[in-house]
Design a protein around this nucleic acid. Structure first.
Lengths: 340, 340
DNA sequence: CTGAAAGCGCTAACAA
DNA sequence: TTGTTAGCGCTTTCAG
């Protein structure tokens, strides 16, 4: 016999399929004797319930879809790790989707997830506005996405973080402070925090856009070119990068040009993952609370799923809205202390 | 009406469910007129097939389980990213499991995956010998695991890589070369390559075991303590680490002690992920061919699945055995060139 | 406390 | 070229 099924267990134990199901799910009244018989049969046959059949009947898959640009990136890697661990503890399995920031891929992944009857979705891909998604048929929670419309959005306090970091740099006496980012946009809160801090201090913002899909080599060249070109009368004194990878490029530039850090050149990054912190312990960074973001996202999602299941007029205030979690500025050897 | 089902489409199009199914799967002879009617009905109703029901019927889930210690680690993050992308292209979805190197967790994940009727499993967790797994009911491919028994094992040439790296260090004139590893063991091929290279040169191996579950802080302290304690007459001249994270700790030590790299102290790591290479471009490292490993693992797995489906006496030589892929030694600013 | 029968949404014989 | 019937493996009324 191939995989034994519930009916085989029933036959072997001399009871009905219903009873086996009851034992399995611990539902209703069962005599201890029946229980024992059934468990014995299960063991003897090496029976394992078929989750697919169960899902079909229950109309719940206990699966959550995760859509992120790529787990090859430390921030998303740590985030997905945290999300998966928490969801597993809550009894969910996770289907992983690397969208690569390609809208079309993201679309296909969404279709696939719905086809698989996922109980919910957590997405951190930026490739398109969530609000414009087709009819979503399961609770969805976004992590740091723009324009999430009716869906909850969990994110770090990007504005406060960048503003604080930039103000620190200004406080050290730096005047020419460059912001490196992947995509320039009015919506970009990290960019806004930086710009507002500079403007408030009477300084003028400078941006360098490196792009998400550019190769690491190309990004490096762009940055080196920029920094080299400005080494004249008004050299860049500090870089505030919208992620730690960009910050590390600036650091590498300084090292290769023998520019002293932090005396002549300061650097602050963004994200503050464990991975980067271990590899580059001196890098100053705005630290996102990854664990807290994951915890909140999972909580919001499981609550939404519960609300949907109960059916009793889902409380409208549980949906939509933004959860903004505080970041911390971690100083390090790549910045100077603020002047007294 | 909630989600429309296949029957609803049939009713709307004025045909039988079978016909709708045929149109959906493009099977058998269909008149163009019927096709059009059905497609129209599908569009009008916004119908989407239920993958769960399909899986139950087909007895195939089109899902692959991935078990790795943690995608928060750059090596596994990049590996999982690559595996997922390739599997998605091949029409599979991926359930992600972070085993954290805990045997019990891994066990539970395996049970869960089998319950979900996965078509196959790729595992890179080291937490227990695959050979001792309970009856595995789907094709399984291992990536760099010890003792995989009857299952294919895909791995880098750990021995050649470590041997080559160690010999390079010896060639630069280094005599006291420390090997940092997570777990000392006779089976450990990275350790063996290192030890054999030293022995062949008449030098004596030195090991430092840092453990996998220790905190990054603790690991750092252990290493610093060791290196500080040996700064007397016979200081450690070079470190060969079994992964790049450990290598970065050694680098940080040198920097904090003002020990010149590579003049007084050399470092080579292992893995050579894109992430680490971007963050620490000067770090020399034995580079694993992650893309090739992923490609091979997916190929082996899909072949095994195909073989199982065909049922025709699976060719025994397709199962088991090791695929060993070549590594490359990437030199960098943390090592000296070999002496003429 | 236990069982019989119906059905979750889809596909695969077998007819027509 | 299309429809009827049965069934994938499980749970759930509803009876007993």
């Amino acid at each position: 016999m191939a995989q034994p099924k519930l009916g085989d267990v029933a036959a072997r134990a001399g009871v009905s399929p219903t009873t086996v199901s009851r034992v399995l799910n611990n539902r209703g009244y069962l005599s201890q004797k029946t229980r024992d018989k059934v468990f014995a049969a299960i063991r003897e046959l090496g029976y394992r319930p078929n989750a697919i059949a169960r899902s079909l009947q229950e109309r719940r898959s206990h699966i959550i879809g995760l859509i992120f640009p790529t787990v090859a990136h430390p921030f998303y890697g740590e985030m997905v790790y945290r999300l998966e661990s928490r969801l597993a503890n809550a009894g969910y399995r996770v289907i992983l989707c690397n969208s690569d920031e390609q809208p079309e891929l993201e679309h296909r992944y969404l279709d696939m997830l719905f086809a698989h009857q996922v109980d919910g979705i957590i997405t951190g891909s930026h490739s398109q506005a969530v609000a414009q998604l087709p009819q979503v048929q399961a609770p969805l929670v976004a992590i740091d996405r723009p324009e999430t419309g009716p869906y909850p959005n969990i994110r770090s306090d990007n504005y406060a973080g960048t503003r604080q970091a930039t103000e620190h740099l200004i406080g050290t006496g730096a005047r020419r402070i460059l912001h490196i980012t992947s995509t320039l946009s009015e919506q970009n809160l990290r960019q806004r925090g930086y710009a507002d801090a500079l403007t408030a201090a009477g300084l003028s913002p400078d941006f360098l856009e490196l792009g998400f899909h550019e190769s690491s080599e190309h990004q490096r060249n762009m940055l080196y070119e920029y920094l080299d070109a400005h080494r004249g009368a008004q050299p860049v004194e500090a870089v505030f990068a919208s992620n730690d990878t960009y910050a590390s490029l600036a650091l590498a530039w300084a090292q290769s040009r023998r520019v002293q850090v932090p005396e002549e050149f300061q650097v602050i990054g963004f994200d503050g993952t464990d991975t980067v912190h271990t590899l580059l312990p001196e890098l100053a960074s705005v630290v996102q609370p990854i664990e807290a973001l994951a915890e909140r996202a999972v909580r919001r999602l499981t609550e939404a799923i519960a609300a949907e299941t109960e059916e009793d007029a889902e409380p409208a205030d549980a949906r939509g809205g933004e959860d903004i979690l505080p970041v911390t500025l971690r100083l390090g050897g790549t910045v100077r202390p603020a002047r007294g």
